[in-house]
């Protein structure tokens, strides 16, 4: 029981962190048709900027300022980097974001070194908020869940219920038509890219404090965020939300369950050796592979993802 509840909570937490990253990426993905390799790098930038600014101006101002700065950086990258490259096709765009991810990691190493930086949350948030089965649960985790859920709500309302949201949705699928109607489509794209990056930055400010703030943090999360976007379906916010939670739960539960493949096989009546090379592999060991297995299966059998309207 205890294990289940905590796995649920941790899965929820991890899933919501994934959602904070993938919400922006899924919009950018459906806009460009190309996955932004550097998206997780903006997440990393957010964490590092919040760490750097937090020392000067405190955590709360940094919580707002760091995502804004990351968003501006993202918009500039779109305007002066991605837009000129767009003329050379999808592969060139993909290569550009790939190079950008590489470059941002090196720049982070340049300014903050290769070791993790001691980025911590303020004391108000690090105290326990409730006790469950004699284990305390830190307030910061609840804070993160609230922020992520708020983000989902606000984004959903913004996209579905406002004029600007309608314009963005239209520009994602029919950019030429929207252009003919007299809207500035490149500006919309730049704004969406900037907002997406800002959201990733916000995820970084919060995620960097819960996980570790180090130069490898983008690489450890980046590929999984891709999985979320592809599994959820292109451009679908709800799909990204569901897929994030699904993958979050999948990974935490696989780690929490101590069983090995052999145990599972014996459970269904196939007698095998408990500690063989293959049967001794535990689900916890397989956990990091699960999202990618899901990615490959989804791309092959259901290319539009769980809730996407179009094929990837």
């Amino acid at each position: 029981m205890e294990v289940v509840v905590f796995s649920l909570l941790n899965g929820l937490l991890y899933g919501l962190l994934l959602f904070m990253l993938s919400s922006g990426l899924t919009l950018i993905f459906s806009m460009m048709g190309v996955l932004n390799f550097a998206h997780a790098s903006f997440y990393m930038l957010g964490a590092y900027l919040a760490y750097a600014m937090g020392g000067q101006i405190g955590f709360w101002p940094a919580l707002f300022l760091a995502p804004v700065l990351v968003g501006v950086a993202g918009a500039l990258v779109e305007r002066y980097g991605l837009r000129p490259v767009h003329a050379n096709g999808h592969v060139a765009e993909l290569l550009f974001t790939f190079g950008l991810a590489y470059l941002i990691e090196e720049i982070v190493k340049l300014f903050w070194g290769k070791q993790p930086v001691p980025y911590r949350v303020p004391d108000v948030l690090s105290q326990p908020i409730f006790t469950l089965f004699e284990t305390t649960y830190p307030a910061f985790r609840v804070f993160m869940m609230v922020v992520a859920l708020l983000m989902f709500g606000v984004l959903w309302l913004l996209l579905k219920r406002t004029r600007a949201g309608l314009m963005i949705q239209a520009a994602l699928t029919h950019p030429h038509m929207v252009g003919h109607l007299g809207h500035n489509v490149p500006l919309i794209f730049m704004t969406v890219f900037g907002i997406g990056c800002a959201l990733a930055g916000l995820a970084g400010v919060i995620g960097g404090a819960i996980l570790v703030t180090e130069p490898g943090m983008a690489h450890s999360l980046g590929p999984i965020v891709f999985v979320v976007v592809v599994v959820g379906g292109m451009g679908s916010l709800t799909g990204a939300f569901v897929a994030s939670l699904l993958i979050g739960m999948l990974q935490t539960f696989a780690i929490a369950v101590g069983a090995s493949i052999g145990d599972l096989l014996r459970l269904v009546g196939i007698p095998v050796a408990p500690h063989g090379e293959l049967t001794g592999i535990t689900l916890a060991q397989i956990a990091p592979m699960l999202p990618f297995l899901l990615l490959v299966l989804i791309l092959i059998f259901r290319p539009r993802g769980l809730m996407g309207a179009r094929e990837t």
Binding site: P223, Q285, F292, V296
Partner: peptide, 23 residues
Amino acid sequence: RAGTPFAMITLGIGELIAAAGLM
């Protein structure tokens, strides 16, 4: 698949094999 899905599948297979390598 071709194009971007191809790139994504190769990324997934790459990560899968990399994880399996340690196993």
